[in-house]
Computed example of a mutant assay.
Amino acid sequence: MTFKNSLHIASNDIVLKLIIPGPALSLTKRLRDVKVAFDELEKYMLEMIEARQSYEKVERHDLFSRLLDANDPHSGDAKLTTSELIGMVLSDTS
């Protein structure tokens, strides 16, 4: 599933993800698509985080960059887990 498709499904069907228990997300095609979309979106986000952290720093003025900067291991401030970081980015897109 492409990033665009997974983001579209996740944005439109976030309520289903929130109210339906995980095991039940395999009952229908739509629910399976929601599960796959969220799983794929998490993989894309992990790749983006790793890419941004491993390459030379480029100044960007977006939420994602600011969260990564705030989560810099060299800053000494409180850190977000990767899951928390992904959750914050995704909550901004919904």
Rank of each mutant, 00 (worst) to 15 (best):
M1C: 10
T2L: 05
F3P: 00
F3V: 06
F3S: 03
K4N: 07
S6A: 15
L7H: 02
L7Y: 04
H8Q: 11
I9Q: 00
A10C: 07
A10M: 05
I14T: 01
I14S: 05
I14D: 02
V15S: 11
L16D: 07
L16W: 00
L16G: 01
K17N: 09
K17A: 09
K17R: 14
L18Y: 03
I19A: 06
I19K: 12
I19F: 09
I20W: 00
I20C: 14
P21S: 13
G22R: 12
P23F: 06
A24Y: 07
A24V: 04
A24Q: 11
K29E: 13
R30G: 02
L31A: 03
D33I: 00
V34T: 05
V34I: 06
K35C: 07
V36L: 11
A37V: 05
A37Q: 01
F38I: 08
L41S: 08
L41A: 10
E42N: 15
E42H: 11
K43D: 13
Y44A: 10
Y44T: 08
M45E: 13
M45R: 13
M48W: 06
I49Q: 07
E50R: 13
Q53S: 12
S54V: 03
S54N: 15
S54F: 06
Y55S: 13
E56F: 04
K57T: 10
K57A: 13
K57M: 13
K57H: 15
V58I: 15
D62K: 01
L63P: 05
F64A: 05
L67C: 05
L68N: 02
D69L: 09
D69M: 09
N71S: 06
D72P: 01
D72G: 01
P73I: 12
H74T: 11
H74M: 13
H74W: 03
G76V: 01
D77Y: 07
D77T: 14
D77K: 12
A78F: 07
K79P: 02
L80V: 04
T82G: 09
T82D: 15
S83L: 14
S83E: 15
S83V: 07
L85E: 03
I86K: 07
M88D: 03
M88K: 10
V89M: 13
V89E: 07
L90A: 04
L90I: 09
D92I: 02
T93S: 14
T93A: 08
